[in-house]
Design a protein around this nucleic acid. Sequence first.
RNA 1: GGGUGUUUAGCUCAGUUGGUAGAGCGUCUCCCUUACAAGGAGAGGGUCGGGGGUUCAAGUCCCUCAACACCCACCA
Length: 882
Amino acid sequence: MSLTKIEDLPTVYDAKETEESIYKFWEENEFFKADAKSPKKPYSIVIPPPNVTGVLHMGHALDETLQDILVRYHRMSGYETLWVPGTDHAGLATQNVVEKQLMKEGLTRNDLGREKFLERTWKWTNDHKSAILDQMKRLGASFDRSRERFTFDKGCSEAVKEVFVTLYNKGLIYKGAYIVNWCPRCQSAISDVETEYETEQGHLWEISYPLKGESGAIIVATTRPETIFGDVAIAVHPSDHKYSELIGKTVVIPLTGREIPIIADEYVDKTFGTGAVKITPAHDPNDFEVGKRHGFNPIWVIDEKGCMKACGEVPSNLHGLDRYEARKQIIKMLEDNHSLLRVKEHEHNVGKCQRCGTTIEPLLSEQWFVKMKPLAEEAIKAVKDGRIKFIPERWEKNYLGWMENIRDWCISRQIWWGHQIPAYYHKTTGEMVVAKENPDPENYVQETDCLDTWFSSGLWPFSTMGFPNAETDDYKKFYPTSTLVTGFDIIFFWVARMITMGLEFTGKAPFSTVYIHGLIRDEKGQKMSKSKGNTIDPVVIIDKYGCDALRFTMTSLCTYGGQDIKISDERFEYGRNFANKIWNASRFVLMNLDGVDNNDIDFSNLTIADKWILDKLNSVAKEVNTNIENYRIGETAHTLYDFFWNSYCDWYVEIAKVQLQDSSLKLNTQRVLRYVLDMSLRLLHPIMPHITERVWQLIPKQTEFKAIMLADYPVFKNSLEFPAEAREMELVFETIKSLRNVRQSFNIPMSLNFNIIIHASADEKPVFEAIENYIKRMARVEGISYAEVSDVPAKKSATAVVSASKIVIPLENLIDFNAEIARQEKKLNKLQTERKSLEGRVNNPKFAANAPAELIKQTKERIDEILVQENAINDFIATLKA
RNA sequence: GGGUGUUUAGCUCAGUUGGUAGAGCGUCUCCCUUACAAGGAGAGGGUCGGGGGUUCAAGUCCCUCAACACCCACCA
């Protein structure tokens, strides 16, 4: 890196310039590359692969930042760290994109045919495959691009085939006809988790089915009258007296006249609708079960496009009609026929395709399923026995609840873009073979269905490490992975399946911790979505505020409970301002390091301020390590912000300005300034990688590290503990603060330096003497003299009680003495209130009996302290009034 | 119907073994004090959703009610 002259550094931090050059510096030096042969202990994360069709959004920004923080922290903490990047082929999503392109050309995928369509989709994919990962570079992501993977690459295909064939051979994958969620737009089955329910205002139609051969009818309530042609029976509850006479009789379907029986089934709810249900096994999951129980053959009346089927069961005028159009027509026909008795408003939930929002059609069809129950057992156990831990813990319950009631997973999709199911059918006999390769391409054709895209993502933690080959260096070194970072919205889609598959195929939990963070929402708490137009583009934020500002702001908003995060554009000013603070404080330090040597701090020549900041830094290092280890990332950000801004900048740097004037202290002060800056930057680096690297490269020092990202992460050290001095510094702060308060209260201009008299207690006097220079400079004090605590303070003075001492500021005619009396009385009041409350406690015998001795001691000490201060204030007031 | 989360300063939210509340922004004063006005100094502001309980002591634990958000299930 080129070392810019300190004096040339701009006074405003230039994020753009910094981020570009710094990221390039890391990449060119291959600092992100992990070494599978390293003797260091491993830490690994696999990225939740973003869709190839995806564009970087705030959710990624948060997810990737958190991963990068963990990765950078562990890298600096001595782990051989690997972060595997990659993308997901996103079956349906990608297919839709390419189909849309074709549509513009007036083509459909069928015009091209499977092979040509795949060729085209591959081309599109190859053009876009890495775009989103390139965008993630803007986030500072330190993933190892040399290991970039794709869920549809060769290795992943191998893994998919291995897993599919094995599960099939174990009887855990089966093919069968079941009701699935069918998306008429995507023209494919989708899984249960891909179906989202929305409450809609609909209707409940009551339709009369006349009895065959006698008068009377049974009235059935339905929300979907268009399915009546697929009815195979009317069901009533066996114990429903209303209908007991009718069970076993035959009714006639209105409009077509087909005859169906009335049956009894426990499934029916006597209290809902009319208590009689039409049974349509081909188009309703519950009806399918009922139909199966009673041995009915399903009748299809709606096709894959959501249109009425052109079959004998459906009146010919409805053939090919869209389901909703057909519904209208049927209502009319039923009305004309006097079969429609009543229409009621009815609120109900309607399933929608997660991807396109189309109302799903429950459709009986032949699909492939994974038998989940047996697989789930181990996945439940692994979480229960702690092999896998969820952070925050409450998601465990969520996960377990789902796993314990898991249903089979429909994995086949009627699409072309994806892992084609490795099943082969004999061209003439139809015999099916499931195998990794076609046993005989002459005579066998492959199953046309593809797998759910989550099938391959479910293998991600080990397919990226070389599986099915368990002997690769990466697999041996980095599998199982350490932490999985993701949002709660894909626990079922992805996390649960990785756990299941990982345990089944590698015998190990694919990761030990699942760190679940909240979702990013807009300032009103609404989900961000393109359709709502409330999205915030991370790239825009980075351009405007800088990547580190984005990262810091988001990180600071993360809570341990994983609450959702509300953001708005202006929020990022927080991070930007902090970055600028770091920049300017660093500039100050760098500008004041002239003549400094390469030696470490001389511990025999430390001032109490030096000791205080070192002690503080030390405890911050301890806290930060603990917090990161425990996924308290937000607290980490707050701790570092507070330390750097409030302790280092506001106090230590100001004090250092005093010490730098003293030739006996200058050199060591420079070393302390440099050391604390260095360590602060290291502590901050995982959260704000660019600015810390940039500044760190400018610090003149001897170090074996080429970059801050490779430097040791600061940890707690006994040698940096100075508890006594840290406490003494409180006197400095209190003194200066109260003097500033006096100045403000009486509008004394900064230009006017006043003298003070310190009525110091015996044990505090030496401390005051040691800190005289700080007080003088930071509170603008001209001269300091001393008196006994017991001495009567001068008249016409403002006063401040600090600890056991009092500070008197003779101000002659400068202040309004009535105002000063009021000020003192207010303070007195506050103290008295506190004392009374404390005394009440101490005088309570139960408190004395039950409270810890240490607390009782502290309380008593505080009371004594207050009494001393109260007396002092009373003295002042008396003097003023005299 | 089942479950989870939220309710703390004007706004957005922190607050890990129970010991009388914090930050950022905003507000009010003052200040361009040679790192930083994206800054510095000072100030004001809360009966921690309501009610009850346990305890010497509750924002923190228990019960209950209310409002809001989300998840799961899905009765035609």
